[in-house]
């Protein structure tokens, strides 16, 4: 028995915005249903080819199966209903929330260590600096990867995922981490007047800083955008 794969049906439903979990389960259930129909038809004594045809006909055409799902807008995912929010704004908000939590944790942790720990100050400062660097250089790449992975799963249009990932990497790339005189400072080239309370760094040439930011952001974004672009191109070619 050759089981139908329902690849086209799956693509059609995902592109129409039906939630990936619903699509995955629907296809799995249809396969099982087809299996049951096949056995029922086989028990009637039909030859295998005719049995397959009869089972597939009873299950319904791809059009019928798709329409019955698409007629239920409540099964559309939140990302399909609000792509600007989910792919455009949420990544930046998530990254900002995580980064803020990290800063708060580091500050309270630093204060605690200052009082109780015997860890040498320079090692502590180095650890905080590396953690900050991870949050402004590595985390944005991971967030972008998450955005693109989610967009791929949902077959979402590329505009909002790319916008969301670009904003996160640009904001993060604009931040410079510096450790001077026992303190770790953060500054951003996007807001020259902004500095954290412990900032040491000061960018005198705003234009150069901005150019560096854009270059850094491009590299960070390319790490996830290139694989995503290749995937989009392949999908467009296949369907």
């Amino acid at each position: 028995m050759s089981k139908p794969r329902f690849d086209e049906l799956r693509e059609r439903l995902l592109r129409a915005g039906i939630g990936p979990s619903h699509v995955r389960r629907y296809v799995r259930e249809l396969r099982e249903h087809y299996h049951d129909l096949y056995r029922a038809e086989l028990a009637r004594g039909l030859p295998p080819k005719a049995t397959e045809h009869a089972a597939r006909t009873r299950l319904g055409s791809d059009d019928v199966l798709a329409e019955s799902m698409l007629a239920r807008p409540e099964l559309r995912s939140i990302a399909a209903r609000f792509p600007a929010l989910v792919f455009g704004a949420a990544p930046l908000l998530i990254w900002l929330a995580l980064a803020t939590l990290a800063v708060v944790a580091l500050r309270s942790g630093g204060a605690w260590y200052e009082v109780r720990s015997q860890v040498p100050l320079d090692r502590l400062v180095r650890g905080v600096e590396l953690t900050c660097l991870a949050f402004v250089r590595v985390l944005p790449v991971l967030v972008s990867a998450g955005v693109f992975w989610s967009a791929m799963r949902r077959r979402s249009r590329a505009l909002w995922p790319i916008t969301g990932a670009a904003v996160v990497t640009l904001v993060a790339a604009s931040i410079t981490v510096s450790a001077v005189a026992g303190q770790v400072g953060l500054s951003t080239s996007l807001l020259p007047g902004f500095s954290s309370s412990v900032v040491m760094g000061y960018r005198s040439n705003a234009l150069t800083a901005l150019a560096e930011t854009v270059a850094r952001a491009s590299w960070m974004l390319a790490l996830t955008l290139v694989p995503y672009g290749l995937w989009v191109a392949r999908r467009t070619h296949d369907y």
Partner: peptide, 30 residues
């Protein structure tokens, strides 16, 4: 035959049904 599933998914989403996967004779049914 195939259109019963969107109804089931909707009823589940509305909290009227609960779904669970269960292996039966080497196959996994919902």
């Amino acid at each position: 035959e195939g259109v019963v599933y969107p109804i089931l998914h909707t009823l589940e989403q509305r909290g009227l049904l609960k779904a669970r996967r269960k292996p039966v004779n080497g196959r996994t049914r919902v």
